[in-house]
Design a protein around this nucleic acid. Structure first.
Length: 491
RNA sequence: GACCCCAUGGUCUAGAGGCCUAGGACAUCACCCUUUCAAGGUGGUAACCCGGGUUCGAAUCCCGGUGGGGUCACCA
């Protein structure tokens, strides 16, 4: 192995993990692991004003939930720390001082108000809003230096020439230095700006491949100029396409759920989410769509990454989640759905097991929430009945007599016959006796037991519900239907 | 507006000059299965942005246009 690949994900702790961020982290991770390299998490918390407490932990938890595991990071440390940008401040300052001393950077005393004014004036004239270099040529003995006036440090950007970004997925991208202005590297408060700090951090952490979203492509020439000024060797760059909302704009809160946490709360399995995410802008060479992170590690290469932004599609995510719900071991689904069942406030300790419920309804659930909701009737007898269903299945004059007969028959069924095939046979027998179609027994029965017209096949449902509970619910409905003055509660 | 990136069905994509009558998946429609709803099965509708080149031949290469996205902060 020629050299060790090291990639990083560098979120700012100002919120939760966004699906776009998760996808960036995932690609970075997969690239590193494909090359048997290391993946690092660094927290970019330079701007303390944007800090959201708890954000760092939440970010890290979401990454871990998706199976994106870091070799080095703020929690586990590592040989190239610190892993929080704010903790590297002295180093940033030291390099800034060096650039100042070498004449590659200079102090700028312009106030934000002045800058803003010229920016607006230039924009009004239709000119690019750039810094004009007012303080670039201040002589070193200019009295302003000792005046105590606040200043920032700006990098002296070459007035001519070009900066070429060699991007691993886009090839060579050329930027004219003339369009770059002398950007700020150290703020008035003595902290570094992003474009300065990121260079020092990546270099100090021996990052070999900077893989990040395309929105950073335009920043890259600035950073390259910093690398050059500092005399640092350049890493490789790869800018991956963005993830867009269905309306083709940047994904934001107004598009509904965007955070990994929110998806989990909706009942999307992390396995499904990460699988869906890897398909956003990348495809496996053999075209397969179902993969674990581990499998993707073997398959992932940058040359198969799309150049176009991907539009995020909730429907496909849910479809994929449904596939996982169907294919995962029952025990895994049971563990995943448990909190959702508990959240419904249903006591599932008695009666059918969670496993049997999962097996019964997982075929028709798209999310864990659906699944939990679909299992509710197992532990909670219906308090309301589907309106249309009542009209359709409870209005026949014979229905009470039929349900009564059904209850009686089921009560007398030997316990060892309480399974799918025997139940089906029993229903057949009764239907023949009553000279009706089996369906005329099935539909009212389902409605009586679950309050709904949709759900699992009746015989497997009854088998799981159990004899006593089934009979009880049937009898209850019979009593309610018999009571002329009583209106059946519907929804 | 300037600069940069991009361009295959509604969406995710396959495609690296002839294998393309453009393949797969989601979504959608129809049918089948069926005790409902799903699931599953089968089939269908639906795309190479436009215009010029290059070439015997272009979805694939080049140029222009158009469209979309991104960046232009003492945010990251």
């Amino acid at each position: 192995m020629a050299f060790l690949v090291r990639t990083r994900y560098a979120p700012s702790p100002s919120g939760t993990l966004h699906v776009g961020g998760a996808r960036t982290a995932l690609f970075s991770y997969l690239f590193a692991k494909h090359h048997r390299g290391q993946f690092i998490v660094r927290v970019e918390d330079t701007d303390q004003t944007r800090l959201v407490s708890g954000s760092e932990g939440s970010l890290m938890r979401s990454l871990a939930a998706l199976g994106i595991l870091w070799d080095e990071g703020p929690d586990v440390g590592g040989p190239f720390g610190p892993y929080r940008q704010s903790e590297r401040l002295s180093q940033h300052q030291q390099y800034a001082a060096q650039l100042l001393q070498e004449g590659k950077a200079y102090r700028c005393y312009c106030t934000p108000e002045e800058l803003d004014a010229t920016r607006k004036a230039r924009q009004a004239e239709g000119l690019p809003p750039r810094y004009m270099g007012t303080c670039r040529n201040l002589s070193s003995d200019d009295p302003i230096h000792g005046s105590g006036k606040p200043y920032v440090l700006r990098l002296k950007v070459p007035l001519s020439g070009v900066t070429v970004v060699d991007d691993l997925i886009r090839g060579q991208v050329t930027f004219d230095n003339k369009i770059l202005d002398d950007f700020v590297i150290m703020k008035t408060n003595g902290t570094p700006t992003y474009n300065f700090a990121v260079v020092i951090d990546d270099w100090a952490m021996r990052i070999t491949h900077v893989i990040r979203a395309e929105e950073h492509l335009s920043n890259t020439p600035k950073q390259m100029l910093v690398y050059e000024a500092l005399g640092f060797a350049l890493p490789q760059f790869a800018h991956i396409p963005m993830v867009l909302a269905p309306d083709h704009t940047k994904l934001s809160k107004r598009h509904g759920a965007t955070a990994v946490e929110e998806y989990q709360a909706q009942g999307i399995l992390p396995q499904a989410l990460v699988n869906y995410l890897m398909l956003l802008g990348w495809s496996a060479p053999d075209g397969r769509e179902f993969m674990t992170v581990k499998e993707a590690e073997e398959l992932f290469t940058l040359d198969r990454v799309q150049h176009t932004a991907a539009v995020y599609d909730q429907k496909k995510l849910e479809w994929m989640n449904a596939q996982y719900l169907k294919q995962l071991p029952v025990s895994a689904v049971r563990d995943a759905v448990k909190p959702f069942v508990e959240q419904m406030g249903v006591s599932w300790g008695h009666g059918p097991s969670l496993e049997s419920g999962v097996q019964l309804v997982r075929e028709r659930a798209r999310t864990l929430k659906d699944l939990a909701e679909g299992m509710r009737f197992l532990w909670q007898s219906p308090t309301q009945y589907d309106t249309k269903g009542v009209v359709k299945h409870f209005s026949h004059p014979e229905v009470v007599r039929r349900l009564q007969a059904l209850a009686t028959m089921l009560r007398e069924l030997p316990a060892d016959k309480w399974e799918h095939d025997s139940l089906a046979a029993a229903f057949d027998t009764l239907a023949t006796q009553l000279e009706i179609k089996r369906a005329e027994l099935i539909h009212p029965c389902r409605l009586a037991l679950t309050g709904q017209t949709v759900g699992p096949g009746l015989f497997e449902l009854v088998a799981v519900l159990g004899q006593q509970e089934t009979v009880t619910r049937l009898v209850n409905v019979v009593v309610m239907l018999q009571d002329e003055g009583h209106e059946l509660p519907t929804f």
